[in-house]
């Protein structure tokens, strides 16, 4: 009992300390790095609370990809105008801001404690999901919920991801520089890193995809690991941002959404119910398509371009 309490106290105090550093740090770059560390501690907390799917997703997407996106944007700011990029700083704390944040924290605390009181009553949706799990052929209830029981939510989620990509691409200006590489893959160690880690990322992504049926994992985590490989390729200059998206890129962006939505609409043609659960191979196919789409979308969001082109070295 003391052991778990000590772990919880440590996690909570580190979490709050990191959050404070993110907000009050003098240097913007350090704030971003502290945010990545915050994400990793959140992943540990998800693990502590017994939800490993969320731990994987937070580590890959919340900490890793969000950190990469922020550092990429920060780098673009610095390249345009190094001094103005970090200007602005912090206002001296007016008392109003402290009061508001205290009230906000209190609101969350009250809501949280009230919510804890109400626990133990409901959970019928979850119970229904767990009871029908054996009918779906999946062992991982979260994957079943995401793909089958609440598949419509997931379709909208993929559309939001696509929408963010379209919006970011529309807003971004074409760069004069040839690429986004910061450490050329021709450097001895970087080349070796990229040659070992990128295939490994592919293997890990495929493993997460396949394991997501019965163990923690799934399409989103796998897609995020793929995107990490894509980020590494972009940073080492192995792929170069392109202004126009090729046909393959455009197709892979919408592939996942099409498969997921299609799996819901196609049963209608055969006289079945909208969004009826498909068989296990169909689930693997849909998840694979989603993995590809998520990986491609997140990689393109990082490189802030419409497409990526491989470079022959």
């Amino acid at each position: 009992m003391i052991g778990t309490l000590a772990v919880d106290l440590l996690l909570v105090s580190i979490l709050i300390g990191l959050a404070w550093q993110v907000v009050r740090g003098r240097v913007l770059f350090r704030a971003i790095v502290f945010f990545v560390a915050f994400g990793l501690i959140m992943a540990m907390i998800w693990g502590r609370l017994g939800v490993p799917d969320l731990a994987l997703a937070e580590a890959a997407i919340g900490a890793g990809l969000t950190g990469a996106l922020m550092l990429g944007a920060f780098r673009r700011l610095v390249e345009i105008d190094a001094r103005q990029a970090v200007s602005g700083g912090l206002r001296p704390s007016p008392r109003l801001s402290l009061l508001l944040s205290l009230l906000a924290g209190l609101l969350v605390a009250v809501l949280g404690l009230a919510g804890l009181e109400l626990r133990g009553g409901s959970g019928e949706a979850g119970r229904a999901a767990l009871d029908s799990l054996h009918l779906t052929g999946l062992g991982n209830p979260v994957s079943a919920v995401l793909l089958l029981f609440r598949g419509l939510d997931t379709v909208f989620e993929m559309l939001v991801l696509l929408g963010a990509f379209l919006g970011a691409r529309h807003v971004a200006e074409r760069d004069r520089r040839s690429g986004a590489a910061i450490a050329s893959h021709r450097l001895p160690m970087v080349g070796a890193l990229q040659m070992t880690v990128v295939p490994l990322a592919l293997v890990v992504a495929l493993h997460l995809l396949r394991a997501g049926a019965n163990d923690p994992g799934g399409a989103f985590q796998a897609g995020a690991v793929l995107a990490a490989g894509g980020v590494l390729l972009t940073l080492t200059g192995r792929v170069v941002p392109q202004a126009q998206a090729g046909l393959l890129t455009r197709f892979s962006l919408i592939f996942g959404t099409l498969m997921l939505a299609g799996s819901g609409i196609v049963p209608l043609i055969y006289g079945g119910v909208l969004m009826a659960p498909p068989g296990k191979t169909a689930i693997y196919a849909i998840e694979a398509a989603m993995m590809v789409s998520i990986g491609v979308t997140l990689s393109l969001l990082f490189s802030a371009s419409a497409g990526l082109r491989a470079v022959r070295s």
Partner: peptide
């Protein structure tokens, strides 16, 4: 091994 590779290359790049 992955941690080793990552920290090694990062240290090299930072020093460069």
């Amino acid at each position: 091994l992955l941690g080793l590779v990552a920290s090694t290359v990062s240290a090299h790049l930072i020093a460069r």
